[in-house]
């Protein structure tokens, strides 16, 4: 197990280095930092001095190595736009995005899996047909439209829920959470639904398809022939066998939710990393953009590692050696 984690970490290294190269290249090709910092009037000497100070006269690989070395320590320099350390900016914004993303993912799983099981088991009931029709809407409506419609309904017409922001937050050891206040919860509802709806319908359709596949297998027929209860057959035997693909997709989608919460955050003016990123793009704030890129890559790599570890927990055929131990 330990060797497996090490080998996966080693595989992740080239991925991270490639992304690092891309985000480093942004500095060189998207605008000229020297020109930005010097402003309009400067002498050649001033310019050379600054280039030397910034280390820009050094060979490419030396610069890149420095960049990687700093990035590994969470050091991404100052934001052009706000003149504050990038790491600090992101740390302030990360809790908002993570809370939103996890809440959306939880919603998608907690509702999507049971709906998928139900529609897989009772294919022809009218409720299944309703769920499927509903899921088609979830899959086909764009996120921003869902968000706007929800705001229109629940904020404008009904006036039940706030249309923007996070509500009141409580700061616990540098982590600002909206989960401890009523207004925080209220503010979380609409963005979570907006962000999670697509994932919910995706998970539902995936679980449904997998359930229908698994229910046809011999071992399900044999489980029935052994006289096990429906509950044991459906949840103990069938659902567990659908988990591997569900975990894969959920893992990938969680990464996507975090990375692409941008649209939802913009619609709801949610003060998360996505909003920060959009604002940084507008201001060509390259340090923030490059740090964001690296962070998202790191999250994808981490989530994939966790997904691989979950495979091991679920499917004994992947475990090395005898079935004991690695539970």
């Amino acid at each position: 197990m330990f060797a497996f984690i090490i080998s996966r970490l080693l595989q992740a290294l080239p991925v991270m280095l490639t992304v690092a190269l891309l985000s480093f290249a942004m500095f060189a090709y998207v605008g000229d930092p020297v020109a930005i910092m010097l402003g309009q009037d400067y002498t050649i000497a001033q310019r050379d001095q600054l280039v030397a100070d910034l280390g820009l006269d050094q060979p490419f690989f030396v610069q890149f190595a420095k960049f990687v070395f700093n990035a590994a320590q969470g050091e991404f320099g100052l934001s052009y736009r706000l003149s504050r350390p990038v790491a600090q900016l992101i740390a302030e914004r990360a809790p908002a995005t993570l809370e939103l993303a996890l809440c959306a993912a939880f919603l998608a799983l907690a509702i999507g899996v049971p709906m998928g099981v139900y529609t897989g088991l009772y294919r022809n009931s009218w409720l299944s047909r309703f769920f499927l029709t509903f899921s088609l809407i979830g899959v086909s409506l764009p996120t921003f439209l869902i968000g706007i419609l929800l705001i229109l309904t629940f904020s404008v017409w009904l006036g039940w829920l706030p249309s923007f922001g996070r509500g009141d937050t409580v700061n616990i050891g540098g982590w600002s959470t909206g989960l401890l206040t009523l207004s925080g919860w209220k503010a979380l509802i609409l963005p979570s639904i907006t962000l999670g709806l697509f994932q919910l319908t995706l998970i539902m359709r995936l679980v449904r398809a997998e359930m229908m596949e698994v229910l046809r297998t011999d071992y399900i027929k044999f489980a029935r022939a052994r006289g096990l209860t429906n509950r044991a057959v459906h949840f103990g035997h069938a659902l567990k066998n659908t988990l591997v693909p569900v975990i894969t997709i959920t893992g990938l989608q969680l990464g996507a939710i975090i990375a692409f919460a941008i649209v939802t955050e913009t619609v709801f003016q949610w003060p998360g990393m996505g909003l920060l990123f959009i604002q940084s793009v507008g201001a060509a704030d390259i340090p923030v953009m490059s740090a964001y890129l690296l962070l998202i890559a790191l999250m994808f790599v981490t989530i994939n590692l966790i997904v691989d570890l979950l495979y091991y927990a679920v499917d004994p055929r992947l475990r090395i050696g005898r079935g004991k131990g690695a539970h």
Partner: peptide, 11 residues
Amino acid sequence: FQDPLTTLNPL
């Protein structure tokens, strides 16, 4: 059943 390779739940 016929095929013992598929009648047991692998998990």
